[in-house]
Design a binder for these strands. Structure first.
Lengths: 93, 93
DNA sequence: TAAATAGTTCAAAATGTTTTGAACTATTTT
DNA sequence: AAAATAGTTCAAAACATTTTGAACTATTTA
């Protein structure tokens, strides 16, 4: 695999292989600006503990950018990771 | 998600989220012609039971085409599925 | 026709992931 | 200062995936 880290490649696909996380990603894409974890969690109706778990996984995979401001954590999609590990996956195998 | 089946979308990412299956896919891509399950299994050194399990998952996800000829099963990548569910994923969210 | 080969199926064991609730930290509001 | 809000951490429970070996079917070779 060209230029990609195999461990991250698998973390990316694992992160995408879940309906809750796909909903999160969907919401973040259509928001197209930073939103708080709480806002996302409310919209897709998951507990805050579960949200915390899923946001962490997405973050470790590099699929989201996260920034903590005071009490709140703001997240947005990291397009570069999608490009490198998803969009260009087939080409780079 | 535009034009994609959510259940298949998740099956695709689950199928890709495993090191053994990534090796299989890698081998199939560089072979660029049909190869038997046995040949792949030998190259990446997995038991035939395990191979059978992984090839089935790839097949159910639509990522490989499979054809049984007599004793042997020949497989190849299904590029259309990669295009639709992986390469175009971000665009279609 | 017996033995070998390719692959599948099944159930059990081993591993890994996700959800839950309680307890926690840090910040903001009353 | 107390209460409320946003999010994290932890351990346990619930659930899902993967590996293993034995038994099986079907085909080919000796």
């Amino acid at each position: 695999m060209k230029n990609v880290n195999k461990t991250q490649q698998i973390a990316v696909f694992k992160a995408l292989a879940d309906p809750v996380r796909l909903e999160i990603i969907q919401y973040l894409k259509q928001s197209d600006h930073e939103v708080s974890c709480g806002e996302v969690g409310r919209k897709i109706d998951i507990s805050k503990t579960s949200g915390s778990y899923h946001f962490k996984l997405l973050q470790v995979a590099g699929l989201i950018n996260a920034r903590k401001e005071a009490r709140e954590k703001y997240v947005s999609l990291n397009q570069a990771t999608f490009d490198k590990y998803v969009t260009n996956f087939y080409k780079n195998i």
